[in-house]
Design a protein around this nucleic acid. Structure first.
Lengths: 214, 214, 214, 214
DNA sequence: AATGAATGAGAGTTCATTCAT
DNA sequence: TATGAATGAACTCTCATTCAT
């Protein structure tokens, strides 16, 4: 679909691209392929076709399927899909902050690439375990610590209550995870509506639990 | 399971089993294989070996890999892994009821087969979509309706507050989903501890949100 | 089609038959199977099904596919499909004799079993060469000699002319062979009409060539 | 043909050929294989070996056995093996014309490929029925019509008699068909002599029947 | 950087055949 | 005599990968 150029059809003649560009396109193709079929059943040929070159052409850029898989995850796991921590400093109403938070964490679900990466993480966790561990250590854990630190600060400042959720704030995004699963398990059709409802419930739940009661 | 024991070695001669039992063992083997490798990369030979017969022997029972996959899901998706709805009638303290609920919903996570099925649901959702839709319609939705009805009754009786969570109680199990993802993405090693912590936070969160405030 | 008994369907229970009877049915089934698919692609299972028993049941009667094939040809090649020689003694008009001859040699073409055997002879001539040689020696050659002797007698008696055809009378049936090929190569639909026309031409040709001119 | 020569041994390294030539060699190999074993029992590996490449290499050129079979017949059935009609214009003696005709129609029997195609036509008529029908319509029928038209012209000019054979001249080649069957059913050894004798009888028979009597 | 032709190593599947019942 | 379960061997076809160009 996103074969970018004009000559993507059958007779598409040898199109020379700078390696970097081609690699980018290969990874995009590989991402969808691995997500849909899984590593084992993914084929180089389909990836090649999606990226607009021949099967053998792939090997000008990657020595092997495995290497491509690794490079893919490496490139996609440099950021948690929860990109940056949520900050609330009390300078505006909590409700608005929560709205922003919800907006921020649900938006990635609309990106098929994000969902694709997450599916790969679940289905290929064995094969990718070393990359996943590294990602966890270098990206996820720091993110969570940072987030928890910010929340702790809020508690200290009396901006948030000291309760189960604020003490392990990570759990506060669990409805998002649930929405993700809906998307993964049930196709987009019916699931989208459920996701929307989960999201609203999520929002209100946060209000309920993060509000400081007098 | 019993293939590791006596007759597993090379010389293990033709072992005749009634079709029904052999099929049961084949499905158990197939479940793990499909979960670990995905449908496409799963091999009949490995499934056969695990079930204690030859590759060709599998075809005495299933006409194809696809048929085995279907029968597997058919047999495994007759129940939601959330087997029965949670009932609270006020005859005992809410805390205890919550404890029971938590116990009930987290226990399945200890069963590798349950986790395996769930992994398959996420990675093979395309291939299995017709089975999944049916499962959703016949098993999941009825379960959720029933559960919501019970909760609505609690609200009516004043046993639970009328809030975002009780109005869409489904979301109340979201930390469980999060725990499942931890298990799927990060192997058992580090993840188990996180699951335990999620579980405790889950318990307290429920207390916080389901408690009726004066 | 000719599964003779009532219980030929799916649940057909073990039906014990005298070996001789069963063998006859097996050979009939095998004949069609070998003819349609060729020896190599014929399957015991299809033969078994056609004969109304299970695959393994076949082995109660024949030690192997090969043995069944041999027995089949042995049973079918005891007669030339040109069963008996044509006799003309001048006691009635030649035309009538020719009519009888044509009738006699074309009738077998209506029998699917005969056509099936002939197809096997052509497609499996390598595999069956020893049987075919024997058939040629013991059946075909004697038949041809006998026929030629009868014709020679006619010539001697002045009942037939002494020409190329009567000196190698075997060739006189060549239009029949041509008709057979039509049947084998082109299905029954269009070919049948051609066969009829070949037959009439054949009849008239014989009149033309066998008639003694003054 | 050239695979027996230099590079046939074990160590024969990857030999790169333009697709067109390789396909030609593959079809030649396939022709013999299908003829000897029949479609069902033919194996890709044997075809590959004969054509001098690996089993998988075949699939660089044909997507499936079926496709190769179709291409084979397509390429071999573009001409009737009776290539061109026989013309007699009276400018030279009929006997010579008949000699030329006999020569022309019997020569193809010496070509193993022709015999191979004909065997396939008879044994695989079911599988190839669509191709055969097309061949009949586009090649055989036109040939026969043309031939009949030429003969009709001879009759009109008084160069040939108006009799059963000339009115349906197609039958005039029936001894050739008989010879073909000899070749197909009985191997080359004994059959060759019979073919020669059939041929001579055929020649004389034509003289007998096509000669205009005063 | 890119390709078409080629291959070895499997994969799913079929099948003649065996064996316990 | 008959069968259901089982298997080894062989088959078609796929795929990651190589190599000459």
């Amino acid at each position: 679909m996103n074969n970018q150029s004009v000559e993507s059809g059958q007779g598409a003649r040898r199109q020379y691209l700078p390696a970097q560009q081609r690699k980018k396109e290969l990874l995009a193709a590989a991402l969808m392929e691995f997500s849909v079929h899984g590593y084992g059943a993914a084929t180089i040929e389909r990836i090649a076709k999606r990226a607009g070159l021949s099967k053998a052409g792939v090997y000008s850029h990657y020595k092997s399927k495995e290497e491509m898989f690794e490079d893919l995850l490496l490139s996609r796991l440099t950021s948690s899909f929860l990109t940056k921590a949520w900050l609330f400093d009390g300078s505006y109403p909590l409700d608005e902050a929560i709205d922003a938070f919800i907006e921020q964490i649900y938006t990635p679900l609309d990106d098929p690439e994000v969902v694709a990466v997450l599916r790969i993480l679940m289905s290929e966790s064995d094969r990718a375990s070393h990359l996943i561990q590294r990602w966890r250590r270098e990206v996820v854990e720091p993110y969570l610590s940072e987030q928890q630190r910010l929340i702790d600060a809020c508690i200290a400042k009396g901006l948030m209550p000291d309760n189960a959720l604020t003490r392990y704030f990570y759990v506060s995004i669990s409805p998002l995870m649930m929405a993700l699963q809906k998307l993964l398990v049930f196709g987009d059709d019916d699931a989208k509506a459920d996701v929307a409802r989960i999201r609203e419930t999520h929002r209100e739940l946060l209000r309920l639990v993060l509000e400081v009661k007098p």
